[in-house]
Design a protein around this nucleic acid. Structure first.
Length: 493
RNA sequence: GGUGUCGUGGCCGAGGGGCUUAGGCACAGGUCUGCAAAACCUGCUACAGCGGUUCGAAUCCGCUCGACACCUCCA
């Protein structure tokens, strides 16, 4: 199915600051690169939000029938903790602190990263390349940039010559910065530098004797600069120019700016047609920060083992919460917010679980085709998941109204409603039917059904003390009975 | 200091010059029910402040105040 012929997607392009119609370079194919994590500690919750946004985008583009090659890298080469020439890299530092090999650090947190993403029901990317697996490509890229005159070697390190580059290119076009402003506003950093100018950035760093992660190169033993791996891997797997490049807002400058510069210096063309940036996640109105303690790990949020939240939240509830705001907005993670989302989420699930029980009519009083297109319109408009969810709640109302007999749907419309709501809720938003999963254990259902039956008998005999006792004690056990026109159902809280 | 994003009703959160009563949560009233819950119906009607453009602005422009991010490792 090639829905993309009918559904015109608009993407907010950070490069132009406008929403633009999405037109892939090769019809029917999409190349998308997203900057992945540096695996030196547990994956950051904000990181999860960013990747979740792109997971949703990946899912939607696939649903539209695009053949998507989604590349998300793993940064496993050590990069310096700051831009000064001295200092330890993050992975080596962690290795020293934990008294293990750097590659053990990499392995441990790569596994953690995958586990967390699996828990949140992520689709795996098409390719997940590592920086250390592409040292040769990075060295070749550096050589090309030197040949083209945009980099210079000093003492075994190679730097990108930003000033030279800016004479013929536009450094800063993504982040809307002018080189002159950068020159005037660059702070003095500690440690002497081999750079010609503070704005220059490292393509290759000479490894000091104690530096463990090191590779041979034409300039001596060393390791690649941080910005380089993304350029090397994106061009290797997606070509010199590809469709979408995503990442967190904080990567816009300098990381993505430098990627553009590297690509233009090496290949002569700007690498990306649509730059997309996901906005930050805050915790209780403030940025997450390890140093101030205002931070929570994904597993702590899921387990409830933390000081910020009143309870544990299901992965899908968190996913739903995140989808309720636009990926381009700052999102504030709060207990009240999660609690509200949780209720809404279960209301949506309850309605979806009622779909099979609905009675079809000869005519429809609701136009399901119109509603369906509204769902597409929402996603076509820069992946506006909050609006999509608003439409899903319209469908919740439809379902309940049909159940109440207020509205009617034909067999065909009922099927269309069911298909569409399933696609958007589960395939595209990536939610999981938690209620069904929990209450789906047949033996428990059978047991509760017996209790429901006994309660009905008690009610028929006007033995309300007994019927209320059954209802209330089930409620205390976390099982809620719901009396409807066609009998009683239950849900597990 | 520079760059950028943004300030929406009790809370969260979309939208974006003149019909969105967006949506969710909370709250109030009603229907249903033996009572409740659930569901349904109804109500609560906002766009930081001050100017300007316009027939008309929450939506455009300017200023003020405030928040956040980046400029230094961070998604």
């Amino acid at each position: 199915m090639q829905l993309f012929h009918d559904q015109q997607v608009k993407i907010y392009n950070s490069l132009t600051g406008k929403k633009e119609f999405f037109k892939p370079i090769n019809e029917g194919h999409v190349g998308m690169y997203v900057c992945g994590p540096t695996v030196y500690s547990n994956v950051h919750l904000g990181n999860v939000r960013t990747f979740m946004s792109f997971d949703m985008i990946f899912r939607y583009l696939k649903h539209l029938g695009y053949k998507v090659r989604y590349v998300r890298n793993i940064t496993d080469a050590g990069h310096l903790e700051n831009d000064a020439d001295a200092g330890e890299d993050k992975i080596t530092k962690k290795a020293r602190l934990e008294q293990i090999e750097p590659m053990e650090v990499v392995q441990r947190y790569t596994v953690d990263f995958h586990n967390i993403l699996n828990t949140f029901n992520f689709l795996p990317p098409s390719i997940e390349p590592t920086a250390t697996g592409h040292i040769i490509e990075q060295i070749e890229l550096i050589s090309t940039i030197i040949e083209n005159g945009f980099a210079y070697e000093v003492n075994g390190s190679v730097y990108f010559d930003v000033h030279k580059f800016n004479e013929t290119h536009e450094y800063g076009k993504l982040s809307k910065r002018k080189l002159d402003d950068l020159i005037h506003n660059t702070r003095e950093l500690d440690g002497q530098s081999d750079k010609k100018n503070p704005q220059d950035f490292a393509l290759w760093k000479k490894a000091e004797p104690q530096h463990i992660m090191r590779w041979p190169s034409p300039w001596g033993d060393g390791f690649p600069g941080w910005h380089l791996e993304c350029t090397a891997m994106s061009t290797k797997y997606l070509g010199d120019r590809f469709d979408i490049h995503g990442g967190g807002m904080d990567l816009k400058f300098p990381h993505h700016e430098c990627e553009i510069a590297q690509n233009e210096a090496a290949k002569g063309e700007s690498p990306v047609n649509y730059w997309m940036h996901a906005n930050m996640l805050e915790l209780n109105g403030q940025r997450m920060s390890k140093s101030t303690g205002n931070t929570v790990n994904p597993d702590e949020l899921l387990s409830g083992d933390n000081k910020f939240f009143s309870k544990a939240y299901a992965p899908s509830v968190i996913r739903f919460f995140i989808a309720q705001s636009s990926y381009r907005s700052v999102l504030d993670l709060t207990d009240d917010g999660l609690l509200a989302s949780e209720k809404g989420f279960f209301r949506l699930m309850d309605a979806i679980n009622q779909l099979d029980n609905l009675q079809a009519s000869k005519t429809s009083s609701i136009n399901i085709h119109t509603w369906k297109q509204l769902c597409y319109d929402a996603m076509n408009d820069d992946f506006n998941s909050p609006i999509l969810i608003a439409h899903l709640f319209e469908a919740v109302k439809y379902i309940n109204q049909v159940k109440e007999g207020v509205e009617t749907l034909t067999e065909a419309d009922l099927a269309l409603l069911k298909e569409t709501i399933n696609i958007f809720t589960f395939d595209i938003l990536g939610l999981e039917n938690v209620t069904k999963k929990e209450s789906g254990t047949d033996k428990l259902s059978a047991a509760v059904d017996i209790l429901i039956k006994l309660r009905q008998e008690a009610r028929a005999n006007k033995d309300f003390a007994l019927s209320d006792q059954i209802r209330d004690e089930l409620a205390n056990a976390g099982i809620q009975l719901k009396d409807g026109k066609d009998g009683t159902t239950f849900s597990i809280n």
